[in-house]
Design a protein around this nucleic acid. Sequence first.
DNA 1: TATCAGAATGTAAAGCTTTACACCAACGCC
DNA 2: GGCGTTGGTGTAAAGCTTTACATTCTGATA
Lengths: 356, 356
Amino acid sequence: MQKDKPTASRALSRRATSKRPPSMPTIKDVALAAGCSTATVSRALANPEKVSEATRLRVASAIDEVGYAPNVAARNLRRAESRTIVTLLPDISNPFFSEIINGMEEVAHQAGYQVLIGDCERDPARAEAYFNLLPTNQADGIILLTADIPRGLVRHADARADAPLVMACEFFSDVDLPTVTIDNYQATAHAIEYLVSLGHARIAAISGPVDNPICRERTRGYRDALTAGGLSSSAHVMEGDFGFRSGYQQGLALLDGADRPSAIFCHSDEMAIGVLKAARQLGIRVPEALSVVGFDNIGFSEYCEPELTTVSQPRHEIGQQAMHTLLNLLAGEAVVRRQTLSTQLIVRKSTGRPAA
Amino acid sequence: MQKDKPTASRALSRRATSKRPPSMPTIKDVALAAGCSTATVSRALANPEKVSEATRLRVASAIDEVGYAPNVAARNLRRAESRTIVTLLPDISNPFFSEIINGMEEVAHQAGYQVLIGDCERDPARAEAYFNLLPTNQADGIILLTADIPRGLVRHADARADAPLVMACEFFSDVDLPTVTIDNYQATAHAIEYLVSLGHARIAAISGPVDNPICRERTRGYRDALTAGGLSSSAHVMEGDFGFRSGYQQGLALLDGADRPSAIFCHSDEMAIGVLKAARQLGIRVPEALSVVGFDNIGFSEYCEPELTTVSQPRHEIGQQAMHTLLNLLAGEAVVRRQTLSTQLIVRKSTGRPAA
DNA sequence: TATCAGAATGTAAAGCTTTACACCAACGCC
DNA sequence: GGCGTTGGTGTAAAGCTTTACATTCTGATA
């Protein structure tokens, strides 16, 4: 009884590789069970029309007889693809993105793709790491939800005109990627017109980062609408970063001064909610003494005090369209390079006529 | 000139596979350039200590001479792993999770792992799809941020005692996975004690789903603290779903009735904010006529009106620990099966002494 | 009936990496 | 000087699937 060391009959396990003793059945096992070659099994799965009805059925039942599931790594290796799409965003904690992601996942899953969420946190190194998934076949395409990406990366990846890159929500002013956005100019102009129509004459704005193209568009819309209303001289734009705190701080700055605005248009709901807090702190009542408009219609905007008037984007649809576009690109089909989805001004309780 | 059809010299491209004409260099090219075998290159990368100093350097410079990057699919195939961890959560739009995810990604990336975010949306089919990534080697492990998972899936995956499954934030009452949580019982009891110490005698609670183990724990803490304060008879628990709306609705129900509570403890900040809205609507002032306590300390809790008193969880650390635990599990190391992280009651403006 | 087209299937290579095993040289020890 | 180590390296198989090409067979056309 000196069999103390190598003991248990390893003859049982078909493969001696290492771990994973209950090694999954392979396409070979299916072929055996179905009485055909592995090629036929593969075809039955990928190109059913190339296989006779009878074989297809035999294969099908063999598959669940042996409990087969394809080995994705092997498939990816052979096909030189990963069936993974990564989406790059500036900040995962911003609830604005979640609905977009849902839209993307919906169409991705349906097409057999995964989506990998890449939170860049404004860190170029992070962005680069995600871009590197492309040449190494770890990702088939990228959807950018932020323009805050080292331009060199994009240019390099975009060398081929049909590079698997799609932009959503934002856009680059200098690189022409297929893009799905809203009409930021129009949406803003419309919101400002609404404020003007209420009688506001001093309408300030808190922008996102001013070098951000969508913020530029919005500011253009803001200025033009002001001009159209004969108020061009009252334009006043502060810069924020879309987050609560910056809205709060810029709101404080705006409201604490001498001739304060009667309305503030913000480029995000979070900033608008920050403004609400600033106003509260200064004892300025909303909407009686100050009107506030946000952008995005995030979940909170219905639960803050007062409920926020805001510009709603079709976030789910943006996600869907962006993913569709990318998948079409991958399929080598022609895509419309610029899709513009419609927005809606949602009037709630944070806006009203200015005090006489 | 009848060469109109097959035209361009394909002899140029080394491989005739299909697309991807600028096919990446492989380990073979590196071996060639470094004047050694592919095995040595592979070793130089994976087990540098098994290779002589000189060779290592030659390989290194060969690598960036030819611009080599490993083919991950091939590696995964060979190693039967994916270097991907998936995390399952009930609802990606809940900002509570984002900081946890950041913590997880931090340690995952450092160890060369990716994290795939799986939004289950309470749909068992979705959860099952994600669990299926495990046996097919598309994922190496799963971190559960929700207990709302078909139990069969977990049991099945957990057949081996060291299954690569880790639970964070929540836990199962009937399956014993390695878990990292806070002490929900203590944290709640502490919050309730605080309310009692302020003089509240009618303290209601809005729970998450009552069959959720962490909600049970919290309710136990709530009841025990009430009993300890001699208020056992006033216990009153409503059921919510962690979301704004349910907090709002249950808040309305609680506050509209005859003998309304002077304080409400909520199992999430979103619900607490819903209660705030309900109170506002009914003209009940917070904190003068009603104290409200939330749970989680999400970003918005500082910007609602009034700022929310809440129980803060170390979310980043929870994410880190959970990922550490999982990676240790994968490495075959022993792990502590139950980690309990500390919480903190953050007192802001939504709580105060009850009106005489 | 010979031939051909087309459908259905099989064979085997290719995709890239990792690793068990074999091999070789250098070294130290008795 | 023979022998056992040890460190460094190469050879080749294995991991699983897809697919170009070859083969076989059926039925139809000339």
